[in-house]
Computed example of a mutant assay.
Amino acid sequence: MRKAQRTRIRGWRWRRNPLRRRSDVVEARIILATWAAAVVGGAAVGAVVAQAVDGALEHDRAGRMPVSAVMVRSAPSATRGVATGATYDRVRAEVRWTDTGGTVRTGETSVRAGTAAGTAVTVWTDGRGHLVSGPIGSAEAAARVGLTGAGAGLVDGLLVLAAGRTVRLRIERRATDAWAVEWARVGPQWGRRTS
């Protein structure tokens, strides 16, 4: 048994013909509006989210200050991961520094393995003088901004397309129900013989 081939005619909903229903025109307009809203809305949401993330990253970078610190004790030598076997050249060690208020503080930070006691190292602090990790680089910040904006735009576009598809399915269901009612009225007349 051969499978029937389906003929696809582009733009049939827009052409005038006696078989075109009102629901076909509404469905065509919904498709057009949905795609336009998905593209334009997705781009707008992506741009707004990217700008917000860029501002947050810039604020975070501005709040971190480099401070000169001194090693309290010698840092341990390089360690090897038990599971992976990789060698780690950065270890946690205790350092001492003076904050902007003149208070001497101590804390642990990541330093090169084997750094001797008394060696000067640069650490990063926040506005309250607490140790924090260094700011992210401009390349990583640009990648985060781009990926976050693109992801937000994509999600927004997909949500709009899903909403449009849901509306289209409801319209198709109503059109099918109307067709069934009409067929129930007209269908029995086809079986009669006319003379």
Rank of each mutant, 00 (worst) to 15 (best):
Arg64His: 00
Ala36Trp: 11
Glu108Asn: 13
Gly187Ser: 07
Ala43Arg: 04
Trp124Gly: 02
Trp12Pro: 05
Val40Ile: 12
Gly102Val: 00
Ala113Met: 00
Asp126Lys: 01
Leu19Cys: 10
Ala113Val: 00
Ile31Phe: 15
Gly129Phe: 02
Gly102Thr: 03
Gly46Phe: 01
Gly102Ala: 04
Leu158Val: 09
Asp24Leu: 06
Arg144Gly: 05
Arg64Phe: 01
Ala47Ile: 05
Leu131Phe: 01
Arg170Trp: 09
Met1Ser: 13
Ala83Trp: 10
Arg64Gly: 03
Arg8Ile: 15
Ala143Arg: 12
Ile31Tyr: 14
Thr100Arg: 14
Ala69Asp: 01
Gly164Trp: 06
Arg15Tyr: 04
Tyr88Ile: 08
Thr148Phe: 04
Val160Met: 06
Arg73Pro: 03
Leu169Phe: 13
Ser74Lys: 11
Arg112Pro: 12
Arg174His: 11
Ala175Met: 04
Thr34Leu: 03
Ala117Lys: 05
Glu172Met: 13
Asp60Thr: 06
Leu57Gln: 07
Ala141Trp: 03
Thr148Tyr: 05
Gly149Asn: 01
Ala143Glu: 08
Ala150Cys: 13
Val72Glu: 01
Leu169Asn: 13
Gly127His: 01
Gly102His: 04
Gly153Cys: 06
Ala93Ile: 00
Thr106Lys: 12
Trp183Asn: 13
Gly101Asp: 15
Ser110Asn: 11
Arg80Asp: 02
Arg8Gly: 11
Pro18Val: 02
Val155Trp: 09
Thr87Phe: 14
Asp99Lys: 04
Asp156Glu: 14
Ala44Glu: 09
Ala78Gly: 04
Arg185Ile: 06
Arg165Ser: 09
Ser74Gly: 13
Arg8Met: 14
Val123Pro: 03
Val121Gln: 04
Gly101Val: 14
Arg185Phe: 06
Val25Asn: 08
Glu172Leu: 14
Arg61Ala: 12
Val40Cys: 10
Ala178Cys: 08
Glu27Thr: 15
Glu94Tyr: 07
Ile171His: 10
Gly127Asp: 02
Val48Glu: 09
Ile31Val: 14
Gly129His: 02
Thr115Pro: 08
Thr84Tyr: 07
Gly55Tyr: 00
Arg21Phe: 13
Val26Ser: 08
Val145Ile: 10
Trp14Ile: 11
Glu140Ile: 03
Arg185Met: 07
Pro76Ser: 12
Ala162Lys: 03
Leu158Met: 11
Gly153Lys: 00
Pro188Arg: 08
Asp156Pro: 08
Glu94Trp: 04
Trp12Arg: 10
Ala28Ser: 11
Ala56Val: 02
Leu131Asp: 00
Gly102Trp: 01
Gly134Leu: 07
Gly127Arg: 04
Gly134Gln: 09
Gly81Ile: 03
Asp126Gln: 05
Gly118Arg: 08
Ala184Trp: 08
Val132Trp: 01
Thr194Glu: 13
Ala62His: 06
Thr100Asn: 11
Pro76Ile: 07
Pro18Ser: 04
Thr7Arg: 15
Asp24His: 06
Val181Phe: 09
Ala28Phe: 09
Trp183Thr: 11
Val72Ser: 04
Ala75Glu: 07
Asp177Trp: 09
Leu159Trp: 10
Val67Trp: 05
Val95Arg: 03
Gly42Asp: 05
Arg128Gly: 00
Ala78Ile: 00
Glu58Leu: 14
Ala4Trp: 10
Arg168Glu: 09
Val25Tyr: 09
Gln5Trp: 11
Arg16Tyr: 09
Gly151Pro: 03
Gly85Val: 00
Arg64Ile: 03
